[in-house]
Simulated scan of single mutants.
Amino acid sequence: MFKKFANIMTNKFQMSMMGEMNFFLGLQVKQTKEGILINQSKYAKELINKFDIQHMKSVKILMNTNWKVDPGSEEKSISPTKYKEIIGSLLYLTASKPDIAFAVGVCARYQSDPKEAHIDAAKHILRYLKGTPNIEL
């Protein structure tokens, strides 16, 4: 049995029946001579539409050095449901966009009692995605 498995593994595997893979588990896949590139630009564009960011101006800088997101107890609380939906969507997106992982992690800390500053920060991340849709790994 092991010998058959070894023979299969040593032969060149060809996917002539299936063709080239374009999508895998929600990731867009592009195969080139240099390697395999993945992105989730389609999903990012869906998020921009879903959370009504398409009319807002895109940004090229994800976080400023003076960007402060804290509990903000004096600010008005917002719906935790919508905030959690945004954060959950962004967390899924970090699979192909590690550049947003830190900022999303900071925002994720405030899911139990989000304030207006927190949703503004989450929308800023979405605006960054709008300005950088085609970055690939």
Rank of each mutant, 00 (worst) to 15 (best):
12 K>S: 11
1 M>W: 13
128 Y>G: 04
23 F>Q: 00
106 V>L: 12
107 C>S: 09
75 E>N: 05
136 E>S: 14
34 E>W: 03
80 P>G: 08
112 S>F: 02
15 M>W: 15
58 S>R: 04
120 D>F: 01
36 I>P: 05
50 K>R: 10
10 T>C: 10
65 T>D: 12
132 T>E: 00
137 L>M: 08
41 S>T: 11
83 Y>P: 03
6 A>I: 14
94 T>E: 12
33 K>Q: 14
86 I>H: 03
68 K>Y: 06
20 E>W: 00
129 L>H: 04
110 Y>P: 02
131 G>F: 04
88 G>E: 03
33 K>N: 15
1 M>D: 13
119 I>W: 09
1 M>H: 14
64 N>V: 03
127 R>D: 07
84 K>E: 12
70 D>Q: 12
85 E>A: 11
5 F>V: 12
88 G>S: 02
79 S>W: 03
29 V>E: 05
128 Y>N: 06
48 I>T: 03
128 Y>C: 06
90 L>T: 00
54 Q>T: 10
72 G>C: 14
105 G>Q: 01
94 T>S: 15
127 R>C: 12
135 I>L: 12
25 L>K: 10
118 H>L: 07
37 L>Q: 12
28 Q>M: 08
12 K>M: 07
70 D>F: 02
68 K>H: 02
134 N>V: 00
55 H>G: 03
27 L>S: 06
105 G>S: 07
11 N>E: 15
95 A>C: 08
134 N>P: 02
75 E>D: 04
39 N>H: 14
23 F>A: 04
85 E>K: 11
58 S>D: 11
98 P>M: 08
133 P>R: 06
48 I>K: 01
82 K>F: 12
122 A>Y: 00
130 K>W: 01
73 S>Q: 10
36 I>H: 08
35 G>K: 11
25 L>M: 14
75 E>L: 08
85 E>I: 00
109 R>M: 00
117 A>E: 07
105 G>A: 07
49 N>H: 09
59 V>H: 05
31 Q>K: 08
22 N>Q: 07
109 R>E: 00
14 Q>G: 03
48 I>W: 08
107 C>G: 01
98 P>W: 05
84 K>H: 07
9 M>I: 13
38 I>R: 02
117 A>H: 06
57 K>N: 15
116 E>T: 14
121 A>C: 01
30 K>Q: 14
86 I>D: 07
135 I>W: 05
69 V>A: 05
26 G>M: 07
80 P>K: 06
100 I>T: 09
115 K>N: 04
59 V>R: 09
34 E>T: 13
68 K>L: 14
21 M>Y: 02
124 H>Y: 01
106 V>Y: 07
91 L>S: 10
73 S>R: 10
77 S>I: 11
26 G>H: 10
44 A>D: 05
85 E>N: 12
64 N>W: 06
72 G>S: 15
41 S>A: 15
53 I>V: 15
61 I>W: 05
122 A>V: 03
